[in-house]
Design a protein around this nucleic acid. Structure first.
Lengths: 160, 160
DNA sequence: AAACACTACCGAAGATTCTTCGGATTACTG
DNA sequence: CAGTAATCCGAAGAATCTTCGGTAGTGTTT
C-alpha cells in the first residue's frame, strides 16, 4: 500500500497528538472530515497504526527509577535466546527488551521503585536459570530527550 | 494530590488504550460517565497525563533501523553536558537521550534508514565539536518487548 | 447531635463529534 | 473518448462529549 504526503502528515500528527479530534485532524491537513476519515480508516486497517497510548507522568505517581541493562547469555543456541525472551515477556518491570549486535546479546530496560528494588529483581532473574552469563547496569540519572521518530526523514526522495 | 485505586485504573487503561471512549472507560471502572469525567479532568489538569500518542508501524512506512549508542564525553564540566544535550535536542533522528551512571555518560537511540545513513549521522555528530570522546554502537537486530510501566507495581502497600 | 463544608457520585440534556452514505470530481487506462 | 478507480465532498442520523444541578456519604466543628 502506498502512502502519499497527506497520509504521512496524518501519521505524524497522530504520533504527537494521539487524541486530536478527527475534525481537527482533517482541518490540519486541509481536507474534509469525510475524506480524512477514509484515509484514517485505510491506514488503520492496513496496520500502520499499532495503537494509541497515554503518556503518564510516572514520577508524579510514585518514586521510580529506570535502569538500562546489558545482557550477555551463556550460550547462543536458538533455544537459549527463546527462553530468555520468553522470560522477559512475563516480567512487568521489564518495559523494553531488544536483541542487539555489537558485543552483547540484549539490552533491557527496567523500571523499579529504587535501586534496591532493582537489585532484588535482577537477583531473581539471575537465579531463575535463564542463561544470563553476565550483565552490566546503567542507572538513568536524567531523561534528556524523548521524541517520536521523524517519519519524513526516513523516506528518500524517490519513495512512494 | 492523592490517587486512589480508581485513578490508577484510569491511568493504566489509558496507557494501553489511549483512544478509548470516555463512556467505555467509565464502564471499565464501574463509574458513571460524569464521575469518570471529573476524575479524568482532575488527573489531566494535575499533569498526570503528559499527552497522547499514536504508535506508528515505522517498519511498514520505510526501511528503518534502530541504533543504541553509548557516549562518553571528553570533559565533564556542567557546560559540556549542556552543550551535548542541546545538540541532541535538535537532531530529529535522535529519538531518545538519557544521561546515565555506570561507566559512560549518555545513551542515545537513533533511528535511521540503514547503517550507512547512521554512519553519516554519527560522523556529523563527531565532527560538530560537541565534545564526544568515544562512542560505541549497538544495532538493534530484533525488538523483543515494549510495554508501558506497570503502575500498580511501583506503589508500595502504604502509599496514598 | 445538629450544622457545616467537602467530596464523590449520578441522571439528564444541549453541544459537539463521529461515521455513513450517495454522488461529484479528478486522474489514469485501454 | 468512454470506462474504471481513486479521492473528494456535503448532509444527516448515531454516538459521544461535557456541563449542570442535585443527592448521598464523610468528617469536622460547635
Amino acid at each position: 500500500m502506498k502512502l502519499d504526503k497527506r497520509d504521512l502528515q496524518i501519521l505524524a500528527i497522530l504520533q504527537e497528538e494521539g487524541r486530536i479530534t478527527k475534525s481537527e485532524l482533517a482541518a490540519r491537513i486541509s481536507l474534509s472530515p469525510a475524506a480524512c476519515w477514509d484515509r484514517l480508516k485505510r491506514l488503520d486497517q492496513a496496520g500502520f497504526i499499532k495503537g494509541y497510548h497515554a503518556e503518564v507522568a510516572l514520577e508524579k505517581i510514585a518514586p521510580a527509577s529506570q535502569f538500562l541493562v546489558q545482557i550477555e547469555l551463556e550460550s547462543h543456541q536458538a533455544a537459549d535466546f527463546q527462553r530468555f525472551e520468553d522470560a522477559m515477556q512475563v516480567i512487568p518491570q521489564v518495559v523494553r527488551c531488544v536483541a542487539v549486535g555489537g558485543g552483547v546479546d540484549y539490552f533491557i530496560e527496567i523500571v523499579a521503585r529504587d535501586v534496591s528494588a532493582y537489585q532484588v529483581l535482577i537477583d531473581q532473574i539471575l537465579e531463575s536459570r535463564i542463561g544470563v552469563k553476565r550483565y552490566f547496569t546503567f542507572v538513568v540519572t536524567k531523561p534528556v530527550k524523548e521524541s517520536p521518530p521523524p517519519l519524513e526523514l526516513l523516506r528518500g526522495e524517490g519513495d512512494d
